[in-house]
Design a protein around this nucleic acid. Structure first.
Lengths: 192, 192
DNA sequence: CGTCACGTTGAACATTCTCAACCCGAGTGG
DNA sequence: CCACTCGGGTTGAGAATGTTCAACGTGACG
């Protein structure tokens, strides 16, 4: 099992036709699934996006923790449930949000997650993700994403440049996204 | 925690604008998340789609099982990992497959899952899902889904009528979908 | 026999993609 | 120091895909 301490990574899948779908962005504190070793093979890939500091925890250590430290085990379960909630939110975005709503929603999510782990407090934060990568996570073309970002910029909602996001009007962003942070279970995560 | 013994159910989310996104279809043997009680609130809803037989397992019972029967606990983890793999496959479908590929992919998934739990063996099986519901799971309009189904029918791939799917050419269906069943981890699930 | 949910179809429209061109800043080799 | 290249990013125009709206069909059920 891996845990990211610093930097970013992502889960993704390459389809037979060569297109890519990003399934999740991993930030410091995020872990690969518990018990992934139980499955015979991986159904997707994981790769870092920046220089990153990653630690591994052996399987026997994990099992020891589960027995000896139920509160840590508990926190790990919760973290996994949050990951699942995030996947459900992504499915919802892909299925039932327009492109601009999807972009806004992802930005809200990344902003909240970055804030929760203390990466930043201002409405300006590092986002070391190329537009191509973001497009592959949002199920759209890099070209179209670029136009959507332009629109968000012109509407004075947010700007994305050189790996850095600046949120101008968070309220507007949330309104466009129809964002409800309950799936991130912030309070619980913060408590854990 | 709930387990479905007979019948179908689905997880779904209603957005502020009134649209619905189906997140998962639950068949006999499927369970709600372990430890869902750990989270303060649910980020989605669950509802049966047919008459169904559902059993509940109390939280203390679960914990007891986890301690006393590690192999059952193991099987439950695996089942949860399979559910996550399914969510990843859905994200991939929504993001990077055309509507006909998406429909074909879902049909492959439902067919394999139904076969795995012994619901049927022939390439004809009950599917008590309205086109509106299927459309809400595939991120498309019922109207468009209808046209896609028409195309699949005319191409002699499969037909869907009155709650019953008949797969005419499974090879063609798999080819259209670009379907790879590894995410369902059939062997492991079958073994568990 | 009326109603109601679901399925089917057509035509106009909107959204998103594709392809192609161009820009720009960061490295790199001459 | 300059020209070259290369990976993003940006823009335009036409084409494809999917939606919307509206009409009509059809079987189940009271």
């Amino acid at each position: 099992m891996f845990v990211i301490l610093e930097g970013w990574a992502h889960r993704y899948k390459i389809l037979p036709n060569g297109t890519r779908q990003v399934l999740a962005f991993l930030m410091p504190g995020d872990a690969c699934d518990l018990h992934i070793g139980l499955l015979g093979e991986m159904d997707h890939s994981i790769q870092t996006l920046t220089n990153a500091l990653v630690t591994t925890i052996g399987r026997d250590e994990i099992e020891k923790i589960f027995v000896d430290h139920p509160r840590i085990a508990n926190a790990m379960y919760v973290s996994q449930l949050v990951d699942e909630g995030t996947m459900r939110a992504w499915i919802t975005s892909m299925g039932r949000r327009t492109s601009i709503e999807r972009v806004a929603h992802l930005m809200c999510e990344l902003f909240i997650r970055a804030r929760n782990i203390g990466l930043q407090t201002e409405p300006v934060f590092d986002l070391p993700l190329s537009q191509l990568l973001l497009a592959d996570s949002l199920g759209m073309t890099a070209v179209h994403l670029n136009r959507v970002l332009k629109e968000l910029r012109q509407e004075n909602v947010m700007t994305l440049t050189r790996g850095c996001v600046s949120i101008v009007d968070i309220g507007k962003l949330i309104r466009i996204a129809g964002f409800d942070d309950n799936y991130l279970h912030r309070r619980i995560r913060a408590a854990a």
